[in-house]
Simulated scan of single mutants.
Amino acid sequence: MRSRPRTYGGRSTEERRADRRGRLIDAALAIWGDQGWAAVTMRGVCARAGLIDRYFYESFADRDALLTAVWDQVRDETVTLIFAAIKDSGGGPLDRLRAAITAFVRSVEADPRRARVGFGEHAGSPVLEQRRHDTLRVFTDLMVEAGRPHFRADVDEDALRMSVLMGIGGFVELMTAWLAGTIPVDAERIIDHATTVGSELALRHLR
């Protein structure tokens, strides 16, 4: 006969473990967002999360595993946000582009610390450098597939992907400069400009 899962305070062991893991990720995100990834340490994260050291190793093999988990969570939430904005836009490809840009810029405006995960300095961390490259590919694929129904039948796939990469790379640099205060404009101006430039890159590939 299978035994029932043990519960503590009305929660199972798995639920309590998941809660601790979530608290560690949240603590690491807060430290990373305020001070950069290099400031994320096992002891610092545990202290902020209010957990003892052994609970860190319950969920993560080392600091790199924690940093990867934070990155993946922020990336996945961002992809979900942008995909929902594209789906709900209800317009043509350029309307979808503006919806995606608007959703992202507004999310960064609401919580700039999250942007520092993706836009911050990652030199010295091979794990984060690889994640950055992988995430660029994820967002390139997302934008290409979102626009595919509207591309010309004879579209040059290589040229298309190069245009998307240039657009995303330039957008990242624009957001980085905006967050640093180098470009003293409001969010709406950023959205308008990014949409205009993105549209210019996209038009050559559209029907």
Rank of each mutant, 00 (worst) to 15 (best):
V144N: 05
D156A: 13
L165V: 09
T182L: 15
M175F: 06
V155Y: 02
M143L: 09
I183H: 11
G147M: 05
R161P: 01
G170Y: 02
R148M: 06
A153T: 12
F171A: 15
G167K: 09
D154W: 08
D158K: 08
E173D: 15
E173T: 12
D141L: 00
H150V: 05
L160D: 05
D141W: 01
H150T: 07
F151K: 08
G181F: 08
T140I: 00
E173K: 15
G147F: 02
E145Y: 01
F151W: 01
G181A: 14
L142S: 03
D154Y: 08
L179W: 14
D158R: 14
M166S: 14
A177S: 11
L174M: 15
F171S: 15
A180N: 14
A180D: 15
I168M: 05
I183R: 14
E157N: 04
R148N: 04
F151Q: 09
H150C: 04
I183A: 12
S163D: 14
F139V: 02
V144Q: 03
F139K: 01
V144W: 03
M166F: 12
M143R: 02
V155P: 06
E157L: 07
D158Q: 11
A177D: 10
V164I: 03
R148T: 05
G170I: 03
M166V: 10
E173V: 08
L160P: 03
A180Y: 10
M143T: 06
P149V: 09
G169N: 13
G167W: 08
R161N: 04
L179Y: 12
E173S: 14
P149E: 08
F171K: 13
I168W: 07
I183Q: 11
A146W: 04
R152C: 01
T182M: 14
A153C: 01
R148Q: 11
P149Y: 02
L174P: 00
P149K: 04
P184R: 13
